[in-house]
């Protein structure tokens, strides 16, 4: 069976019906284990004290904010090339989840920055490109609701998603080439064991898994809702015509 058969709405609904429940359960388990472990059972950092604990929210939400845009980029490209409606609806469904993650990352970053850096906000390259990504999310959602025809809306939002991906990648890689910025290097890199002590790293991994499964469950739920809305709309049109 080919992967593309899930582009059939009926197949997609049947498959996700089985996947969604376990995803919610995994999200709940991983988030409660990871956050409780991180907040109550980890020691204080040697310079930051207990303020370090905000990484259990900040790092996973920022990670997801960027990766959700990349997921929207992939589904938008599938829509543009193969014209699968489910793919376009998945991108539409992911945006509100993504914007929430971006907002969580911005707010936790500000709360961490005030005592640590001495400021809530600085026009550092990484922070700025992340703020632009947040604005792109808002614009993306606004564009979806501004256009009545669903196919035109899917086309135009897909193009917007292509453009916005520049800032998604910039906010991830900004620290690599703007080394004279305020934000520290990536907490999540392949050599992370050297930077982050294991006692902080393991609960962080659990939180990352929790955020990922939460996103998966929410995006499936929202995509299913969008598909049902399309069906309801089609039925209304048919009844009106009859």
């Amino acid at each position: 069976m080919s992967f593309w058969e899930y582009a059939n709405p009926r197949r997609f609904m049947a498959f996700t019906d089985r996947v969604m429940g376990p995803a919610f359960v995994l999200a709940a388990v991983a988030l409660s284990v990871g956050l409780v472990w991180g907040f109550f059972f980890t020691p204080d950092d040697f310079r930051q004290g207990s303020t370090v604990k905000i990484i259990y929210l900040h790092v996973p939400s920022a990670f997801m904010a960027i990766n959700i845009w990349v997921m929207m980029l992939v589904t938008s490209l599938i829509w543009l090339i193969r014209r699968h409606h489910v793919s376009a609806l998945a991108a539409k469904a992911a945006a509100p989840v993504g914007v929430t993650m971006t907002l969580i990352a911005l707010m936790t970053g500000a709360i961490w920055g005030q005592p640590m850096w001495g400021t809530f906000w600085a026009w550092d390259p990484r922070l700025t490109s992340f703020l632009i990504l947040f604005l792109f999310y808002l614009g993306y959602m606004a564009l979806w609701s501004a256009i009545e025809d669903p196919d035109t809306a899917a086309d135009l939002t897909s193009v917007l998603c292509l453009v916005g991906s520049v800032f998604a990648f910039l906010s991830r890689y900004a620290v690599n080439f703007w080394n004279q910025g305020l934000h520290q290097g990536a907490s999540l890199s392949m050599d992370a064991e050297e930077n982050i002590s294991d006692v902080f790293w393991f609960p962080l991994l659990v939180c990352l898994a929790g955020f990922f499964f939460l996103f998966l469950a929410l995006v499936l739920l929202r995509t299913r809702t969008e598909i049902r809305k399309r069906r309801a709309h089609a039925i209304t049109l048919r009844e009106r015509a009859a």
Partner: peptide
Amino acid sequence: SEILARHDETYMPSEVID
């Protein structure tokens, strides 16, 4: 007129440092 601290990406428990 304004001083900000810059943090690197090392995270270690204070007990280990002690």
